[in-house]
Amino acid sequence: MPLLTQRIQDESVQYSLVASLDNVRNLSTILKAIHFREHATCFATKNGIRVTVENAKCVQANAFIQAGIFQEFIVQEESITFRINLTVLLDCLSIFGSSPTPGTLTALRMCYQGYGHPLMLFLEEGGVVTVCKINTQEPEDTLDFDFCSTNVINKIILQSEGLREAFSELDMTSEVLQITMSPDKPYFRLSTFGNAGSSHLDYPKDSDLMETFLCNQTQVNRYKISLLKPSTKALVLSCKVSIRTDNRGFLSLQYMIKNEDGQICFVEYYCCPDEEVCESEY
């Protein structure tokens, strides 16, 4: 076999990750939902890609882009992990402009050769191809929140519409967002304690916004508002949100996001409760 052909063949085989997408916005939208820090860690398996962003060792956001979203998705290794600058990645993905032009789609082919190699992006729109190489970084350990569904105490699924406004109007002078979930009144309450005074937002359990209300025990937890505020990005895109707390007061927010093609993706936020409260309480 001639050397040249051999090399080419090798190269095509060498990519440990190849993913193609007809509409790059299906990917960029969901990545934007977790874009609150510069860097993200990507895990890829046969099932899809998980992109994780963390902050302050207290909050973690995961975007799940399942293989079905991609038109082509090949993973040669069992799993691939790398860290990448998410800002740069998003900039590249929207290199043809972030607002969609009607009738034109940007197609994407994403290749990764393996550890130590850059992530290659081939973006095509209207016959113009852009090649981006983004250097990957040493993967970092991600937090394990050990959020086990068996430990879930309270769970609420809401139409995102009902929370959207609440989150966008959060009193940011308040340091914390207090979430009360209870089988009795006030059922589900979001409270802030700002300079101007406190405000409470109550959702009755029989509200039409409430898809599921499964609360076993009254839980009042406070979360740093600065850590939760970024989740608004995901909230805005989502159609439903599941709010769960476990026995330690850890919060899990799962957002169901419908992309332009009607496929469903999930974005998940985990957040640790604020311990300050406990000190003041006792």
Binding site: F43, E77, E78, S79, T81, D141, D146, T180, E275
Partner: peptide
């Protein structure tokens, strides 16, 4: 599923927040 042991980094435990007791009356 990928085997957990092979390449997944062992997770770092997230700091634990203490569980809160009953809320004060709002």
């Amino acid at each position: 599923q990928p085997s957990p042991s092979s390449c997944w980094c062992p997770g770092v435990r997230a700091p634990r927040g203490l569980r809160r007791a009953e809320a004060k009356g709002s």
